[in-house]
């Protein structure tokens, strides 16, 4: 299996030198193409911190992160920013859509950041809104959409530039159970392909079944890492 991401011995602490609070304690992991990897664990176990370190958003104190054969924490700031733009799609828990822009404009932002022309960006954004099942809603501002629909807009924004790695942080936390399941099911059956990896951080047990592999964190460490097999974790 080809790996898209390798992390070795990641250490991350917060606070000052004399009063370190370790959020990640020597974590290593791998992610492969065509896999949907879940990172689960109780609140405060370090999931978001880990996600940020491996996606080039938060610099670790120790350790190495290789994404698509690039050592991302050796890049300079601008390089890393454009690396994220070109290779990683983000879906945030609170969506973070601009309320004063239309859905299509929100989705088009990564393309506009890539200096693609306005018209082409909007055209492609509309196509991706259709892919996530929001055809015809491109002109609406996000606040006129339901929570699930807003999440889909955020997903469309994350995939519009066709990144190889898509990262979700607690994607279902603000959704009701059924909507959450629908969305993750959609993600799994429509967005995963040969050249793509999806990493989902969650502690929502109702969606564990969509995982190919699950990494279980606790207290800044990986407690377990398994292929998904039926009732592995209590729901």
């Amino acid at each position: 299996m080809e790996t898209i991401l390798k992390a070795f011995n990641i250490v991350k602490w917060f606070g000052d030198r004399d009063n370190k609070m370790y959020a990640l304690k020597e974590i290593s992991l791998e992610a492969h193409y065509k896999e949907i990897l879940f990172i689960i664990g109780p609140s405060g176990s370090g999931k978001t911190t880990l996600l940020s370190v491996i996606s080039g958003i938060l610099r670790p104190n120790e350790g190495t992160v290789i994404v698509k054969d690039r050592n991302i924490w050796e890049m300079n700031g601008d390089e890393l920013t454009s690396f994220r733009l070109n290779n990683i799609g983000f879906v945030f828990q609170d969506y973070h859509l601009f309320p004063k822009l239309t859905s299509a404009e929100n989705v088009a932002i990564p393309l506009i950041l890539k200096k693609i022309s306005w018209d082409d960006s909007i055209k492609k954004a509309l196509k991706y809104l259709e892919i996530v099942g929001l055809g015809g809603k491109g002109e609406l501002p996000p606040y006129k959409l339901s929570g699930g629909e807003q999440q889909r807009v955020a997903i469309a924004r994350a995939i519009v530039s066709e990144p190889d790695l898509i990262i979700f942080d607690e994607p279902t936390a603000s959704l009701d159970g059924e909507t959450g399941r629908q969305i993750i099911s959609f993600v799994k059956s429509n967005l995963l392909n040969e050249s793509r990896t999806i990493i989902i951080v969650t502690h929502d047990a109702r969606i564990y079944e969509f995982a190919d592999r699950i990494i279980h964190m606790e207290d800044g460490k990986i407690k377990q890492s398994d292929e998904w097999k039926g009732d592995m974790y209590e729901k």
């Binding site: 454009s82 733009l85 950041l113």
Partner: peptide
């Protein structure tokens, strides 16, 4: 927060 999200997505300073 939206500007922060833009930063994460890949907007240069």
């Amino acid at each position: 927060e939206k500007f922060g999200a833009l930063k994460a997505i890949g907007a240069q300073k």
